[in-house]
Amino acid sequence: MPATKDPQTKLIDAAMELAASGRWHDVTMIDIATAANTDIAIAFDHFKSKADILRQFVRKIDRLVLADLDPAEFNEPGHDRLIAVMMARFDALAPYRPALKSIIADHGDLGPADALRAIKTHFGSMRWMLDAAGFTTGGLHGSLRIAGLGTIYARGFLQWLDDETTDFGPTMAALDRALARGSNWDKRIHTGILRFNNLRGKVQSKCSGLAQKYRPTTHTETAPDSTKNPDISS
């Protein structure tokens, strides 16, 4: 007997089914709750809006990809690991392609605030994908890596939506080329940051030396000696 789905999973699945069968813009939270056979109050407890459902759907895909990682692949070159992680993501999304086409056609039906949250969620996913592929994501270099991969993935995602091949070969080839170009830029950025840090260290050292050299000398005033200057009033 299959395990009973939790309300959150039921609502996400219902939202994807409704998106696949019609226009995402026309789907309401009541429609989703009804399709999931869930009370609208329970739906409210789990999601505040359709945009919230989409963010949780992305997190669901993140979990599926990360749970399916093979530790044996961690010894492979970073480029190959990253392609494997990206393609695993597309494999996890494959059952939802009709729904995703509908959602993309309506630009997610997102308002300005939800769009900003969606961008944050997207970059969060890219951070995890880079971490899963063995890349560091901290500091300025890491942030630039995340932004670069986010752009590469977004373009690959749009191509994947229209890729009708059984193995998504054209999408993989496009990703391979894009990541190769990205790797070249990543090396340049790494070199540039090292040079900048080296120059900054020299400037800071020079400034510290100058500050020490020209630091004003303080003089301590000596109290008058009462024996040499007797009080005339005594």
Results as ranks from 00 to 15, higher is better:
Ala3Trp: 04
Pro7Tyr: 00
Gln8Asn: 11
Leu11Met: 13
Ile12Gln: 05
Ala14Gly: 07
Ala14Trp: 02
Met16Thr: 00
Glu17Tyr: 00
Ala20His: 01
Gly22Leu: 02
His25Lys: 13
Asp26Pro: 03
Asp31Ala: 08
Ala35Glu: 09
Ala35Tyr: 03
Ala36Glu: 04
Asn37Gly: 13
Ala43Ser: 09
Phe47Asn: 02
Arg55Asn: 10
Arg59Cys: 08
Asp62Met: 03
Ala67Ile: 07
Leu69Gly: 07
Ala72Val: 13
Ala72Leu: 14
Phe74Asp: 15
Pro77Glu: 08
Gly78Cys: 08
Leu82Ala: 13
Ile83Glu: 11
Arg89Ala: 13
Asp91Lys: 14
Ala92Tyr: 03
Tyr96Met: 00
Arg97Met: 01
Leu100Pro: 00
Ser102Leu: 02
Ala105His: 12
Asp106Phe: 07
Gly108Phe: 02
Gly111Gln: 01
Lys120Ile: 03
Lys120Leu: 03
Met126Pro: 01
Arg127Ile: 00
Trp128Gly: 04
Leu130Glu: 06
Leu130Trp: 06
Ala132Asn: 07
Phe135Gly: 04
Gly139Lys: 12
Gly142Ser: 12
Gly142Asp: 08
Arg145Val: 07
Gly150Ser: 12
Thr151Val: 15
Trp160Gln: 02
Leu161Thr: 02
Asp162Val: 13
Glu164Ile: 11
Thr166Met: 10
Asp167Met: 10
Gly169Thr: 15
Thr171Arg: 07
Asp176Gln: 12
Leu179Asn: 08
Ala180Cys: 13
Ala180Gln: 14
Arg181Phe: 14
Gly182Trp: 07
Asn184Gln: 15
Trp185Lys: 11
Lys187Trp: 09
His190Val: 06
Thr191Glu: 11
Thr191Pro: 00
Ile193His: 04
Leu194Trp: 05
Arg195Trp: 11
Phe196Cys: 01
Asn197His: 06
Arg200Ala: 13
Gly201Asn: 14
Lys202Arg: 15
Lys206His: 12
Lys213Ser: 10
Thr217Gly: 04
Ala223Glu: 12
Ala223Asp: 05
Asp225Thr: 04
Lys228Asp: 10
Asn229Cys: 06
Asn229Trp: 09
Ile232Leu: 08
Ser233Pro: 00
Ser233Glu: 05
